[in-house]
């Protein structure tokens, strides 16, 4: 993922719609913790309205959600070649070998992290960009990282020797509030199991859009289009963490979104077939307000456990682990 930030150049007529995302997921197989660290840019950084958003959001089975949100003017944060550094949250991509470094300094929120992720499965450039809302979106992914460093949740260290990492980047031009959404899931079991990544760019009503399900490990397989189906069961009715709080207060009508308790993803293509059964343990809602036009996007992060079985490239697969399923509208 050795690419710089895709900052808009001077004279770019679409610069106001600029978005870019650096993203790291952590799956702690030892204690069941699941979380994300990301930094993102919304709007042309030369525009004083543009915003940098840092988010650290972790769920631990024993202590629940821990989160830290930092919002700063984009012009006030440190932008590196492929990094966004804020006061409490920083993330740098493109380290030698395709690695990632992330830090969170938020002891009041129960999160302390100094993480380095090195690629286990080679990065993947996804064909694109794809149409997305009023603009477009690009995506690249490193499906599995090996993590080192230190991560503490509520003062308890997460055993990184028994953890998996995932990293991706998004960039493009759109405004929150556009007729756009996406579905995305990352399902990681301990090595040597492959990482399984699901994605679909879609409209706000999730009526159209091509689904892909990728198997990334010693065997690699990409399922695309009609051979991938998604269904859900049940209703996740427990209270959500909703951040940032001011946006949650503004959108109190979205405090109880229709979220599933269980998500089933299947893929069948010739003699290849795979089935993911994901059970939601907890959910959070991140509300993204566009800094330039009046509009909002709602990113629902569902964390839990999964089982996977099937046959790919003649090899029978059966494994389970931790996953994140994201539903954006």
């Amino acid at each position: 993922m050795s690419a710089p930030l895709r900052l808009p150049r001077a004279g770019d007529a679409t610069a106001a719609a600029y978005k870019e995302w650096l993203h790291l997921n952590v799956f702690g197989h030892g204690d069941g913790s699941v979380g994300l660290i990301n930094t993102s840019l919304h709007g042309d950084p030369r525009d004083p309205r543009a915003v940098a958003l840092g988010t650290a959001l972790f769920h631990h089975p024993a202590t629940g959600w821990h989160w830290q949100v930092e919002v700063q003017p984009a012009g006030a944060v440190s932008l590196g070649w492929a990094s966004v550094s804020m006061q409490t949250i920083a993330l740098a991509a493109g380290l030698p070998g395709g690695g990632v470094a992330a830090s969170v300094d938020a002891s009041a929120s129960g999160i302390q992290a100094r993480l380095v992720g090195s690629e286990v499965v080679r990065q993947l450039g996804v064909p694109g960009p794809m149409s997305f809302g009023s603009g477009w979106i690009g995506w690249s992914v490193a499906p599995r990282l090996r993590l080192s460093g230190r991560l503490e949740l509520a003062g308890q260290a997460v055993d990184l020797r028994r953890a998996s990492g995932y990293h991706d980047r998004n960039w493009g031009r759109w405004h929150w509030g556009d007729d756009a959404g996406w579905e995305w899931g990352a399902f990681l079991a301990p090595e040597p199991a492959p990482a399984v990544v699901f994605t679909r760019a879609t409209d706000r009503g999730h009526r159209r859009g091509v689904r892909t399900l990728g198997v990334h490990g010693a065997i690699r397989k990409m399922f695309r289009g009609g051979c991938v189906t998604v269904s859900s069961e049940g209703s996740f009715d427990e209270p959500l963490v909703r951040i940032p709080g001011a946006m949650a207060s503004l959108h109190s009508g979205r405090s109880r979104p229709a979220l599933p308790r269980r998500v089933l993803i299947t893929a069948e293509e010739g003699h290849h077939h795979l089935r993911i059964d994901f059970t939601v343990r907890a959910a959070a809602q991140i509300i993204a307000g566009d800094p330039v036009v009046r509009g909002y996007g709602f990113l629902h992060e569902l964390v839990g456990g999964f089982s996977c079985e099937g046959t790919v490239a003649g090899e029978d697969l059966a494994f389970g682990g931790l996953g994140v399923y994201e539903h954006v509208d």
């Binding site: 989160w67 209270p239 963490v241 709080g245 949650a248």
Partner: peptide
């Protein structure tokens, strides 16, 4: 502050 931090829902 609890509302701003997302620790308290309006409802």
């Amino acid at each position: 502050l609890a509302l701003l931090d997302g620790r308290l829902e309006t409802s």
